[in-house]
């Protein structure tokens, strides 16, 4: 039993690299502020920058959660590759699909 536990303990790779709970709370505070900013676009008129701003905020929140809470920043790069590989493929394929469908709605294209 003891050998297994020892193995398990070393298997938990680099626990010391992980952020502290305080850091997690700080991240959450940042996320909360960003969300508040997002929601404010509904109440106040941000004009033309509203939509680009929302997209940027979404990406920032995404990266924060993925990087810190999901440990992508600290883990093996292969995990990031799996995640962002899937994400990129999805973005490219579906953007293409939507383009093709919208193009058809303009009959000359």
């Amino acid at each position: 039993m003891s050998t297994t536990e020892a193995a398990e303990a070393t298997d938990q790779h680099d626990a010391h690299d992980h952020p502290t709970p305080r850091q997690y709370v700080n991240i959450a505070v940042v996320l909360a502020v960003l969300t508040a900013l997002e929601v404010s676009t509904y109440f106040f008129d941000f004009g033309v920058i509203a939509i680009p701003l929302l997209v940027v905020l979404m990406i920032v929140k995404f990266i924060y959660v993925a990087g810190w809470f999901m440990h992508l920043k600290f883990d093996s790069p292969i995990f990031s590759r799996m995640m962002y590989g899937g994400l990129t493929l999805a973005l490219v394929l579906y953007a293409l699909t939507i383009t093709v469908i919208l193009l058809d709605q303009a009959p000359t294209l």
Partner: peptide, 22 residues
Amino acid sequence: WHFVDIIWVIIFTVVYLIPEIA
């Protein structure tokens, strides 16, 4: 769990906020 959360981050912006503002 975090994955389900980040999917909602996308849905909240793309499904709710942006169309609503538009």
